[in-house]
Design a protein around this nucleic acid. Structure first.
Lengths: 364, 364
DNA sequence: CTTGGCACTCCACTCTACCGAGTGCCAACT
DNA sequence: AGTTGGCACTCGGTAGAGTGGAGTGCCAAG
């Protein structure tokens, strides 16, 4: 599991932190995540893993502040972690983080019970992630452009309107309307449909190019051309295929400045931005971007956790968690990890032709 | 244009308001909507349409308060409208409300330019509505169960997974996975697909029933049965077909209590609830539900404006605006009205076989 | 190097006073 | 009779002063 970060690099101190400072930083992060209050030296000294007096802690905290890991909201208040502090915390997590038993069984139940089309699974997965973590979640479905076309046809919807329908081997269905000539015979349409199928089936979506079909009734040919164009433009539009955002109301619980809430929500509404964000952050494996690290201004007070969905090694989408920088990283990372890997296995199973879910052995 | 409300009836005063009181109420509503501050008698007296002194206004306000149209947040503060006050205001609007020229041209431009599938149009419409009104918007697409099936087929996705794809004459495509027997021949699948098409095409989606096909290879028959079941269950699930929620970040600007924001957003997340709400509120024509009138607790501080999308008289979806009770009703109602009627015409045009948009004559 | 002691800082909270917007009431006016 | 200006009153919001306490930085002793 790699924990990449794409920060363009706030000046990192040359020396890594020694064990005691790290322990103190950990304690501050843990406490601050829980209480949302600046943490004082006494509290830190009391916490496990730090066997020194408050005075010593204070001295170390001064150092940690000088090196950029902590800040004081004001003199004579406790410390809170900076983005860099969280970064260190995340990079040096001892255990990979683990879900509570309740959450674990929640995940297991979910993946045992969920049925239906991929879109529905993804949508409900985003709700699951939000529920698990109490943060907003984003799930991006696999891109279709490497998918093979298993069916293509043109059907008539109205006298002058046709619909090109292509079915992809990942279970997605793409469609596009095409204009039909005014008095087009049904037979011509069938011919066109057949010609379309012949050209499409077995190809990958991205291979589809607008081309001039040969050896056809010119009216059918014209339909085929238009259909090719329409499908090619579907394949070309780089818009994310399916983006599901869950638990956006949790944003309101995470910040008490209503303006922050508004701007984060507004950013989430722009799905394209969110997808770019996720792809920027995603390095390989589980990735975390904290505060300013992802360069998206309105999300400066947010952290993003991203995990790829990988089917047979190929990246096939992304799950993400978006919460305040003050979030429970180990738990959120564990949730992203678990959900993404379950989803990956699920999709792989479908690909291999097993429509039934794998039943998880229940233990405990 | 009817402005129904489904309130279960807070005790309405027996007498309607005379002209002066109505004018005062209007002034309070207008002022409060603009400033969000309790409105005093002096401000009201100054406003146009009320030609009396503050003292008189005060006397009338006492009456309006007694009758339930106004409240005081506390003694010696100005008045703010109650839900009933807004209700009266809405029910007695002189003009139907009109959009500003900017907004009007925005709508015109939108409907001249927007292209693509119905889903995309609906989604972008919800964004438009949000933009127009600065409130959250909801757009619900037409229900498919009266739509006719124009194409049906089964295709193979993987060795043991098939996909039933049905195309409806409103341009929607429904799909469902079916399990295939392990070594099913392609020919058998084709037979099943053809049999499916024969049974489906021309029917309405809601007519589809699981039935035992006769005179078929038993393996093909089994697929047909499963496919019928799958499609029937699609038709049966009463989940809303397509719900698009736009501008939910606007909620954050509408309320300053972060808890209100959270609960409203949480309600919006439950699309089913929202759809029920809209259907409950929708009477016929443009409808408004203010505060407690719709019985949804978490939305008690919200007003909902709903307008049907009607294609050839048949209800084909709904557009809605959800904002704080303190909203600009005339403007929001005008927006809902205009957008719903444009959408209606648009869909009617598509039905009639004209895939091109009607170009609006530009005036001014 | 660590630690307890200690003076200091500064936020958060409370209390008080006060200003002013807005009211209700009343007597005078049309 | 209805309307109006006058007036005393109410009460929320704000500003200022005082206070308590959490937390700090520093220092000298261990």
């Amino acid at each position: 599991m790699s924990r990449a970060h794409n920060s363009s690099g706030p000046p990192r101190p040359s020396e890594e932190l020694d064990g005691r400072r790290a322990a103190i930083l950990d304690a501050v992060v843990a406490e601050y995540v829980e209480t949302a209050q600046p943490v004082g030296s006494a509290t830190v000294a009391r916490s496990a893993g730090v066997g020194v007096s408050p005075a010593t802690v204070r001295a170390e905290m001064v150092a940690l502040e000088r090196e950029g890991y902590l800040t004081q909201p004001h003199t004579s208040a406790g410390r809170i972690p900076t983005d860099l502090g969280y970064r260190f915390f995340v990079d040096h997590l001892a255990e990979p983080g683990v879900l509570g038993p309740t959450q674990r069984s929640q995940v297991a139940r979910f993946f045992n019970h969920v049925r239906g089309e991929m879109e529905e699974v993804l949508e409900r997965t985003s709700a699951l992630l939000a529920e698990l973590t109490s943060h907003a979640s984003v799930v991006v479905g696999p891109s279709h452009d490497a998918a093979r076309i298993v069916s293509a046809q043109v059907v008539r919807l109205a006298s002058k309107v046709g619909l090109v329908v292509t079915v992809l081997d990942d279970g997605a269905v793409e469609k596009a309307t095409v204009e039909l000539d005014d008095d087009l015979a049904d037979e011509t349409l069938s011919v066109a449909s057949a010609a379309l199928a012949e050209r499409f089936v077995g190809r990958e979506l991205r291979e589809v190019r607008a081309e001039e079909p040969l050896g056809l009734d010119p009216r059918a040919a014209s339909i085929v051309t238009r259909s090719l164009e329409a499908v090619a433009s579907i394949a070309a539009r780089r818009e994310p295929e399916h983006v599901f955002i869950g638990g956006s109301s949790r944003i309101a619980s995470s910040f008490d400045a209503v303006e922050t809430v508004r701007s984060v929500l507004a950013t989430l509404e722009q799905q394209l931005v969110v997808v770019h964000l996720l792809n920027d952050v995603l390095d390989s494996g589980l990735s975390v971007a904290i505060g300013g690290e992802h360069g998206y201004e309105p999300l400066a007070s947010c952290a993003v956790i991203v995990a790829p969905i990988a089917v047979e090694g190929a990246p096939s989408g992304v799950v993400g968690i978006l919460g305040p920088t003050r979030m429970n990283y180990p738990e959120a990372m564990a949730a992203a990890e678990v959900v993404s890997s379950k989803l990956s296995r699920r999709f792989a199973a479908v690909r291999h032709g097993d429509p039934e879910d794998q039943v998880e052995p229940r233990r405990g």
